[in-house]
Design a binder for these strands. Structure first.
Lengths: 140, 140
DNA sequence: TATATAACTGTCTATTTTTGTCAGGTATTT
DNA sequence: AAATACCTGACAAAAATAGACAGTTATATA
């Protein structure tokens, strides 16, 4: 049960973007340097984040990325949704009926319930929450 | 964010074991047939489950596995702990200080919090709960 | 207008993890 | 003794992950 580094990178990159932003665009290069994340890999993530309406791109010199919405309107679960596929813990639900003992369906309730908890927890936090926490840490 | 099939198999196998048990031991072969899980793979899982004090083995003809404890004392999180390493969503905490912008630490709080939720949810369910649910489904 | 900058795009690849398979060995009941 | 079933370790296919690479396109500024 691991959150992929893809998701972790995406969240970290966006917190970094918001911390360093000051309104203007922040280049992927800068985020890559700050966060020690491969530039090429970040580019792939930001393509998805742009398509997912999390960020807007600004081309040309001095360009980069800005948040597409206020930070307090960007939930963590949205971020993860845009870069990876699912927060549901199992693929499940093929339900081809091949199992005659049917403990499969009994266990589904665990994973569905777990998925709900994961979702609601991540939906309860916004990028703004994390950024405030990050700022607090920087002051120490 | 996926629960590994290893963990899913372990939980399903134990529910199946408890459903088909009737006090006596159930062979891995039977569970394998019922659940359509590779016999060899199940063997590997049950080695861990035995070491984790979840099941006891009974050797010889008519042998198999029995629960080492009453089903209502076996929590789902225990099961998953014994077959896979972690319920903490990130590897994290290397904390080599290489990141000067330090959004890394800010995001850790998300994953730690998430890990807590996952843990407490899975700890709130026992094998007995799942088995009852399985029995209910069989009656329909 | 030229040039530097930085986003954009698609393809390819090395590595790791997952999910098993296979070939035997060992213990125990009948 | 023989059948049953657990036990063990080595090996392997397949998928996911993380990232490299080689370009193309858009735009601000000199």
């Amino acid at each position: 049960m691991r959150m992929s580094t893809k998701a972790q990178y995406a969240v970290r990159a966006l917190v970094s973007l918001n911390l360093n932003g000051d309104g203007g665009p922040v280049s992927i290069k800068k985020i890559s340097d700050c966060e020690s994340i491969s530039l090429n890999y970040l580019e792939q993530l930001f393509v998805k984040l742009r398509r997912g309406q999390i960020v807007r791109s600004v081309r040309g010199p001095g360009g980069g990325y800005v948040l597409a919405r206020p930070a307090d309107e960007i939930r963590v679960d949205e971020i993860i949704d845009t870069v990876e596929e699912t927060l549901v813990p199992v693929s499940c639900m093929e339900n081809d009926g091949s199992c005659n003992c049917d403990s499969r369906c009994a266990t589904q309730s665990v994973w569905v319930g777990l998925g709900d908890r994961i979702r609601s927890f991540l939906a309860s936090m916004t990028l703004d929450d994390l950024t405030r926490e990050g700022r607090k840490r920087l002051e120490l």
